[in-house]
Design a protein around this nucleic acid. Sequence first.
DNA 1: GGCTAACCGAGACGGTACGTCTTGTCTTCTA
DNA 2: TAGAAGACAAGACGTACCGTCTCGGTTAGCC
Lengths: 226, 226, 226, 226
Amino acid sequence: MPLPGDLPHDRTESAGYGRAMQRRHPASRTGRPRSAAADTAILAATRQALVDLGWSKLTLSDVAVRAGVAKTTLYRRWAGKNELVVDAVAELFDELTLPDRGSLAADIEGVVLQFAAILARPEARSGLMAVVAEATRDEALRERIRASIVDRQKRLVIAGRARAQERGELPPESDTERSARAVDLIFDMVAGSVVHRTLVSNQPADAEWVHGLTRVLLSGLAASAR
Amino acid sequence: MPLPGDLPHDRTESAGYGRAMQRRHPASRTGRPRSAAADTAILAATRQALVDLGWSKLTLSDVAVRAGVAKTTLYRRWAGKNELVVDAVAELFDELTLPDRGSLAADIEGVVLQFAAILARPEARSGLMAVVAEATRDEALRERIRASIVDRQKRLVIAGRARAQERGELPPESDTERSARAVDLIFDMVAGSVVHRTLVSNQPADAEWVHGLTRVLLSGLAASAR
Amino acid sequence: MPLPGDLPHDRTESAGYGRAMQRRHPASRTGRPRSAAADTAILAATRQALVDLGWSKLTLSDVAVRAGVAKTTLYRRWAGKNELVVDAVAELFDELTLPDRGSLAADIEGVVLQFAAILARPEARSGLMAVVAEATRDEALRERIRASIVDRQKRLVIAGRARAQERGELPPESDTERSARAVDLIFDMVAGSVVHRTLVSNQPADAEWVHGLTRVLLSGLAASAR
Amino acid sequence: MPLPGDLPHDRTESAGYGRAMQRRHPASRTGRPRSAAADTAILAATRQALVDLGWSKLTLSDVAVRAGVAKTTLYRRWAGKNELVVDAVAELFDELTLPDRGSLAADIEGVVLQFAAILARPEARSGLMAVVAEATRDEALRERIRASIVDRQKRLVIAGRARAQERGELPPESDTERSARAVDLIFDMVAGSVVHRTLVSNQPADAEWVHGLTRVLLSGLAASAR
DNA sequence: GGCTAACCGAGACGGTACGTCTTGTCTTCTA
DNA sequence: TAGAAGACAAGACGTACCGTCTCGGTTAGCC
């Protein structure tokens, strides 16, 4: 019996991580407020559990114990394992920044290397691929991943192109639709290649490999734009 | 009476799919031989279960029932869910062929479209990503995936390049190491991009998109080779 | 979350049936308390399953279903089939009373007939002998049987002798050790004879047979006391 | 498909151990005869398994391995675990003899002590009580136990009485029905008391206790005969 | 001395129960 | 009213044993 003030799975419907904490049901103002520390502890515990156990052996009971929190608290805030892991992993990718290394190619290499470094961390590896796998059968989860993780990072592509245009490396954009398609293609190619290299081919995405990838990608885009 | 002669998980250590049936322990010649029909039925049942339930709700008990087989039989041949799903999914990718469409670019587009078509099938989507996720914590499984699924398809890259060299589209190869690195890069870029487009970005890898991908890739490789 | 506070098999170490519910670990005061109704339902279901299936085909899964209870609940309270059946059977023997039939011999016959009637019930037959058989290899189980079933009924022997002494049929006891030995011998002879007659020789322990047994026993004790 | 000459569970219907080897189907004279050594080995292996594991953990596969025999061979000769154990245990009780110790009381004490010694052996303890428990729900098994184990030992009671009559300790029997009833009562009392003392009360049936039992029994029978 | 029927070992097979584990809910006490 | 604790119903896990069924190979007895 969900009590009136109960807020089941508050963070479930959140559009993007970070704005989740603002309640969807501002009505409930009375009673003991939820512990904010609990959120932090739970997400950190989730990441640590991913490191120690991997996705498939991670249990919510275990996360609760690690976070020093009751299972009830966990289920009150997330609908299930998938949603929790998405939020826990999403935080990792917010660390990405666009370094200013002087040229478009160098900037891209910088971001891709950061991305590869994150993918080398076990909590990202297990967590990310597992939720992507789950999302193949769950439209809501797929949307949550796109919103919380993927689309949030397109900012990097856009910022990179803007900076390149400032530098004069790229012409100012005219056709916005064509531009959007290009962003998507670049994103799929970069993210996909790194993930495949790292997780499937099981080879390091080191500086040399990233250099090769960037060169092919930029040459190809330049040639194909003509 | 599972005593000395027992052959647990015969297919577990198999180097490549298709050659798995030849026993690793040819010593044991006595006793009732394993049913060959069971293998076929189990793999088909696994794929159907992936379609109906997805990876995380797929249970080996259920597969056994679908295949009309005892759980024992399943566990006698595969070490667990992961290994079974790898074998079941691997068969799907053996359908890939290299069509002769007249030019390198067209050949590549043809293969990539086939690949995208397979990835659009739910048994491939759920199964493949899930085992990749599991493999992030399991070296043996990672190796099994590489051997059974990925490396087996490098044949397509190699055959494609050979045909292009016959046509004179590509010069004969000289530096073999450099060549191997190029094959790996192509493979990661193609497979990774299609997977990301299909499973993460959740957009169709249709003819137009594949055309764009191929153009960028070929232009980039050509330019970067200079 | 079966962590520190877990109370596995609470009823396992109970000294005597009926006092089992008072916890051995009074520390744990928090959390949802165990359902008292479940205990009753489980023991009744166990007896019914003994009637329907006998000991060797009785499964805890089946008992759980009959009792409308999860298997977990069963295993949380009893260590296994043996312990459960001991408790279920023990309740049967608590029905025994010492009737006042006017003379020692008649009182004994009355109790023995009651005992035989219980042994004629299938839940007692299968259950009792099976746990005795298991107890041949399990000291703890043997002790549990003695405490829960056997020793609890020595009250009848003692009460019977007291009443006979009131009536003047027996002299007041002097030598307590010798007295204890006599109680034990009587108990082994009565219980053993009835069990053997009923379960091994497979003949009814009817009024006539009980009369003969009682006569031999009382005459023998009287003669041997001289 | 049981071939024409197949003789499933040859020993199942045998009236008493020792006469079992003579086939029920004398038709089959051709073909390889069954190994006689296997029988011996299997029964010995069964007893040893009872010692090591007890009845409930004894498995036919394990017995087969211990006996150096295939499971098939076992199932060809016995219908199941119960029947096998009955035969294995029955052999133990054939060791009982009626010693000549000079008086009826002494003779009885001698036999009872032998009986107690056998019951002190773990293979007899576990095996006997377990099959008795199983027999509570299996008329055929009950009959088999009576025939193979119990009735075979009534010879001791009868021989004892005959010898006592020779000595003049007992009058020659006149009423045969009454006599048979007395034999049964004696048997139930002696066997039951010793079993209960040993397996339930868990006390040794030593010389002193046996002496007390015998005295009560003989005095009681003498007094009750008057 | 070859035939042949029944035996034997090995072990795979379809079933089924085991005892454990995880899930998501519910219930109690405490803060 | 939130939270910690933990019992609860449900059901999958991977293992073990059951009793049956193929297999290939052996061993007597009769031609």
